[in-house]
């Protein structure tokens, strides 16, 4: 019964407990109401409490059983690059327009691959951007400006 072995369950339990607490505490500030007229806080408060209980139960059973394997490696570089790529797209697409934003986003995403260098990543990005414009703007007629106001589009 080593702490190390139960790490997966302890972590999972902590995540659920954390979310449960956050939802329960926030919903306590809304009108709870009565069962007859459930206020906006009623449903999330009950569920938040339930999630806290489940989270603790997962952590405790994991600790008692002591089973579970190591979660394994986390691809940190890929993780950071992918999240940054998504955030970049969301933040800049309106101002820069579809084409430049997509080029940057896909290049960043491409670099998340193992041992992918900059030049191949850019080649991939250019091709995928072209393909996306063909599919979404030309074929499917989505109204997304190719260049945004920052670039005079």
């Amino acid at each position: 019964m080593k702490l190390h072995d139960a790490r997966k369950d302890l972590l999972a339990g902590a995540i659920f407990t954390g979310f449960g607490l956050a939802f329960a505490i926030t919903s306590a500030s809304y009108d709870i109401g009565t069962p007859l007229r459930m206020g906006p806080g009623f449903f999330p408060l009950v569920l938040g409490g339930l999630l806290v209980v489940l989270g603790i139960a997962i952590a405790v059973t994991g600790f008692i059983a002591g089973e579970g394997s190591d979660p394994g490696p986390v691809p940190w570089r890929a993780l950071v690059l992918l999240v940054a790529a998504l955030l970049f797209f969301g933040y800049f697409v309106r101002a820069l327009g579809l084409v430049p934003t997509l080029l940057v986003t896909v290049t960043m995403a491409g670099l998340a691959g193992r041992s992918v260098r900059v030049v191949p990543a850019v080649v991939i990005a250019v091709s995928i951007t072209a393909l996306s414009v063909l599919i979404f703007v030309v074929a499917l007629q989505l109204r997304l400006p190719l260049l945004g106001p920052w670039l005079g589009g």
Partner: peptide, 27 residues
């Protein structure tokens, strides 16, 4: 795969953003 997953990311961004042009949907 190094071609496949950037394409999935691109389609995810465009597809989701196109629903209501809401950056929060991409976040």
């Amino acid at each position: 795969y190094r071609w496949l997953f950037p394409a999935i990311i691109a389609f995810a961004c465009i597809g989701t953003y196109a629903i209501s042009l809401n950056a929060y949907d991409v976040y």
